[in-house]
Simulated assay, not measured.
Amino acid sequence: MNETHARRLLNSYKHWTGKELIPIDSKLPLLEQLEESAVVILSHGTEPDPILNYGNAKALSLWEMSKEQFTKTPSRLTAEPMEREQRAEFFRNVTSNGYVDNYTGIRISATGRRFYIKAATVWNVLDEQGQYCGQAAAFRTIVRIES
């Protein structure tokens, strides 16, 4: 990921929600601030089976992957399959509203550990011309599921 993508994540989040994703220090590179954030932040591109293109340090740790492994992973493989209608409704809401707030779902790490993400925001990422270029998610609350 580069500073352009970092700016797109931040600007798109603000565009859809009216809020700042994280507090920004203008003296530090955006990418560094996203990387070190206490908020889990990840995104994927626009491929037919979207591939993750960014995960900050918290995301990589949570999914127990290296950056190289993470950015080769289809985003659908980080989650348990949703029921078809639930999944369809979720994507209709993101598409029509530009974002969905307060999303909760079960995710799976590379080693098979299951966890809930709670109160996540999922939003459409826009480029500098306002064109759709992927989706991103951010959340703070994680509940581990014991096997």
Rank of each mutant, 00 (worst) to 15 (best):
R76K: 11
L77V: 02
R84N: 14
R140G: 05
F90H: 06
K14C: 08
H44M: 06
I145P: 09
N53T: 14
R113F: 06
A59C: 10
E32K: 13
K19M: 05
Y116R: 11
T141C: 01
D25I: 09
I106M: 03
T78Y: 02
T46Y: 02
L34P: 03
M65P: 05
N56C: 00
F139V: 00
G45K: 05
L31F: 03
L126S: 06
V122E: 00
K58F: 07
Y116N: 14
P81Q: 15
P74R: 14
M1I: 04
V39K: 09
I22H: 06
G18C: 02
G105Y: 05
E128L: 00
E64P: 05
Q33L: 06
V100D: 01
A110R: 11
T95L: 01
L126T: 05
T78Q: 07
F90L: 01
L28E: 06
N93H: 09
P23M: 09
R144G: 07
A137L: 09
N53S: 12
R140Y: 09
Y99N: 11
T71F: 10
W63N: 04
E85G: 10
N53E: 08
E89I: 05
A57V: 06
Y132A: 07
L62I: 14
S43N: 15
R144A: 11
L52Y: 11
L34M: 06
P48M: 08
L10S: 10
E47F: 10
V122K: 05
I22N: 03
Q86A: 15
Q69M: 14
V100F: 05
L10H: 02
S109I: 02
N53Q: 06
P48L: 13
T141P: 00
Y13T: 14
A137R: 00
M65G: 12
A88I: 14
I117S: 03
G134F: 01
F139K: 00
I117R: 00
N93W: 00
V122C: 03
D127T: 07
A110K: 11
S66F: 06
F90E: 01
E3Y: 08
I22V: 13
Y13L: 06
S96Y: 07
T141R: 02
A110D: 09
Y103S: 09
H5V: 12
E83I: 04
P50R: 13
G98Q: 12
K118I: 09
N56A: 05
I108T: 14
S43P: 07
V122M: 01
P23E: 12
M1T: 03
K27C: 08
E64Y: 03
T73K: 15
E80I: 14
K72G: 11
T46F: 02
Q131M: 07
T4P: 00
S61H: 11
I145D: 09
L9S: 08
S61D: 13
W63I: 12
E20S: 15
S43H: 12
P23A: 14
